[in-house]
Design a protein around this nucleic acid. Structure first.
Length: 270
DNA sequence: ATGGCGAATGCAATTCGA
């Protein structure tokens, strides 16, 4: 038994798990990933292609819906205390309709609660979906605040946040003040969540500009490297100390029929 | 400035994503 164990947690918006099934499988075969958090699975739970991943030794936890949204966690170690949506923590009275869109799944491993989120995109600043995004982030803050208050577990929040936190997280931030994924109100809403006490895992190791996780399918975004960093791992203080590396894997984005996102991986030493 | 591309639904064209 090694004195220290390493746990690699990846996050990847796959833009349909059924379309990306083979790509995800191949990536897991060539990479030693203990936990994979998926977003935009776009499939109801009964149709999730779980067998392919169970064969690789993963427990598969899903929370999906027809056509849109959907999150899942694959884990080599069985998770404890798995729950989906806001209501198990915040209560159905407070949450109301906010769990209609399937955007959050959580479970516990190694004294660590993993919270996998797919934050709403928001469409545009004058769209009702923008208001939805800001309110959803407010609810996420309440959710995390409640977790922190009610338990001493470490927390890793990872997923597609649909927000580039800083100028250097966009290939060119000029003129993007009113652009979805960069406007000040949404960045402030994210910062308000992080102010509870979470830190950006990637920025512990890499202060540089030009680190991206998403490239638009249109206008050859990837070949021109017109990217954005909108997928993140945010860690509570103890976990932040345990992080030993964090990186983006560009290989899946180079493949035929890729997702428009590529995986981000954090390695934790316990 | 606009639209570009890709996926789902469901079978043509529309909606959505970011």
């Amino acid at each position: 038994m090694p004195k220290e164990t390493s746990l690699k947690i990846a996050t990847w918006n796959v833009n349909s798990i059924r379309t990306r099934q083979q790509l995800v499988r191949e990536w897991l075969v060539t990479n030693q990933i203990e936990i994979l958090c998926l977003q935009e699975t776009k499939v109801v739970d009964g149709n999730f292609p779980r067998a392919d991943f169970e064969e690789l030794g993963y427990q598969v936890y899903v929370y999906g819906q027809k056509a849109y949204n959907g999150v899942a966690i694959f884990s080599k170690i069985p998770l404890k205390d798995v729950s989906v949506g806001f209501s198990p923590i915040l209560g159905s009275t407070r949450v109301g309709d906010w769990d209609e869109q399937k955007r959050l799944i959580t479970g516990v491993v190694n004294n660590t609660r993993i919270v996998n989120v797919y934050v709403p995109n928001g469409a545009g600043l004058n769209d009702s979906k923008y208001e939805y995004k800001l309110k959803w982030l407010g609810l996420l803050r309440e959710y995390l605040q409640t977790l922190v208050k009610e338990s001493s577990l470490d927390i890793c929040i990872c997923g597609d946040f649909n927000i580039a936190p800083e100028d250097k997280d966009i290939y060119n931030s000029e003129g993007k003040e009113n652009h979805i994924m960069f406007s000040p109100p949404e960045r402030q809403a994210l910062q308000y969540v992080l102010d509870i006490g979470f830190q950006d895992a990637l920025r512990k190791f890499n202060p540089n500009s030009g680190v991206f996780t998403w490239w638009d399918y249109r206008a050859n975004g990837f070949s021109r490297n017109r990217g954005w960093r909108i997928d993140h791992h945010y860690l509570s203080p103890n976990l932040y100390e345990k992080a030993e590396s964090c990186w983006v894997d560009l290989e899946p984005r180079k493949q035929v029929k890729p997702s428009d996102h590529t995986p981000v991986i954090v390695s934790l030493e316990f």
